[in-house]
């Protein structure tokens, strides 16, 4: 099926789109990281993620 009817072209296109979106997401993540560093608030652990936790409660 893959060779017969040029299905590989579709798979390649989808793969490029998917990988392109991943690269975009990574660049957003990195940009956000730079902003976080610049505006680091005392008392908040900016390295903590959504799973582990926070202590910015008074």
């Amino acid at each position: 099926m893959i060779d017969e009817n040029k299905m590989y072209a579709v798979i390649a296109v989808l793969l490029i789109i998917l990988l392109g979106l991943f690269v975009y997401l990574i660049s957003i993540d990195l940009k956000l990281r730079r902003l976080e560093k610049r505006h680091r608030e005392p008392g908040i652990d900016n390295e903590s993620d959504t799973a582990s936790k926070i202590k910015n409660e008074p």
């Binding site: 997401l25 993540d29 956000l32 902003l35 976080e36 505006h39 608030e41 908040i44 959504t50």
Partner: peptide
């Protein structure tokens, strides 16, 4: 989805800080 959630939560925290 967890990755996107992490980014959105960090964005919201940063927004809150600013």
């Amino acid at each position: 989805a967890v990755w996107i959630l992490e980014i959105k939560v960090r964005m919201s925290r940063l927004h809150n800080t600013l």
